[in-house]
């Protein structure tokens, strides 16, 4: 009996020791992990915001420092299509091209919110491929480029959190916001070459070689994304409230025989207000003119200059209440109807 009791006590004691050992080690591991994460994250953060060139730098500049009168937001079709000097010459105002490769409407919306929190631009242009209004998983994934700004910019948190319900928890990690940025950050910090594209415009200098008459803007995929419609509405409401002139523009594509699907949606939801957005996707000046394009959806420098000249004239007329060829409007959108 006594022996059994002794064995039983000994077993219990061993078990208890195992529990203690396990929880002690888990706590140590978690503590070390948190410390390493915070230190690494701190270093990554320092290096990230120390960059003086490249697309991350331009993103930081847009969000934290840009103060131009005119700002254009959009994807690569913005960064390669809007020539700042031509707009500045026409409007006698400062211009910044905040377009960024691979960043679409939700990311642009976040950048707009960050910018408009700091100051009030006079004119905001959104270069939008109307099919961007469809639900695309990749657009939410693309919001990862905004993670480094999550903590300092509460105004864009709700947009970043659209990525997943767990995003706010992931942000407890100091390293996570810089996920997949390691190599870029290291190289940009090693090479201190200053930013070449001071006003954000990234010219393309090649002429289209492989001429194909199709492009990926025509066919829509999926359903209308209510988050994006809401974003359109928010932008329009805010601009109206702050008296910011707002233009939505679909810049040229090489060949587009029919109207882009999403254009109809924007037209429909703007019908109740005063007009349309500026659609160059079927513009005959550019349509099937390979000399103006580098590929199906990107203008080269020559095309960008021509487009910027035409567009700046159109917007100038609009801003000065001169009748315009293409009706640009401050729009108010109804999210609920979609």
């Amino acid at each position: 009996m006594a022996a059994n009791l002794f064995i039983s006590n000994s077993d219990n004691s061993m078990k208890m020791n195992q529990y203690i050992k396990f929880f002690k080690n888990v706590v140590i591991l978690l503590a070390v992990l948190i410390v390493v994460d915070q230190i690494t994250g701190y270093l990554m953060r320092r290096l990230y915001f120390n960059m003086v060139a490249g697309e991350n730098y331009r993103e930081t500049f847009t969000i934290d420092s840009s103060n131009s009168d005119i700002v254009v937001f959009g994807s690569s079709r913005a960064s390669h299509h809007y020539v700042p000097d031509l707009f500045e010459e026409k409007f006698k105002m400062s211009f910044y091209n905040a377009g960024r490769d691979g960043n679409f409407f939700l990311s642009n919306y976040a950048a707009f919110k960050a910018v408009s929190k700091r100051y009030t631009p006079k004119l905001v242009i959104f270069d939008i491929n109307p099919n961007e209004l469809m639900y695309r998983k990749s657009d939410y994934e693309g919001l990862s480029s905004l993670l480094p700004y999550y903590h300092d910019h509460p105004e864009i948190r709700d947009i970043i959190e659209l990525r997943s319900p767990f995003e706010k928890y992931k942000m407890f990690s100091a390293v996570y916001p810089f996920n997949s940025q390691l190599i870029r950050i290291i190289f940009r910090n090693l090479s201190k070459t200053p930013e070449t594209y001071q006003k954000g415009y990234l010219p393309l200098f090649h002429k289209m070689k492989d001429i194909k008459a199709d492009n990926d803007l025509v066919e829509p995929a999926g359903e209308i994304d209510k988050n994006k419609i809401k974003a359109l509405n928010d932008i329009a409401t805010y601009c109206k409230k702050k008296n910011i002139k707002l233009a939505f523009v679909c810049s040229p594509v090489f060949s587009n025989s029919k109207e882009i699907f999403g254009s109809k949606i924007i037209k429909e939801i703007t019908k109740a207000e005063q007009g349309q957005y500026l659609d160059f996707s079927t513009d005959t000046v550019f349509d099937n003119h390979p000399e103006y394009f580098q590929d199906n959806i990107h203008l080269n420098d020559e095309g960008a200059k021509l487009f910027s000249t035409i567009l700046s004239n159109e917007i100038y007329k609009f801003m000065n209440h001169i009748s315009v060829d293409k009706n640009i409007s401050v729009i108010s959108l109804k999210a609920d109807s979609y």
Binding site: L29, L33, V36, D37, K137, S144, Y176, N179, S180, L182
Partner: peptide, 15 residues
């Protein structure tokens, strides 16, 4: 362990 965790955070694909 820390190396694996950190590598997941640094270069893992979360999407």
């Amino acid at each position: 362990y820390i190396f694996l965790f950190l590598t997941i955070l640094l270069i893992g694909v979360f999407d």
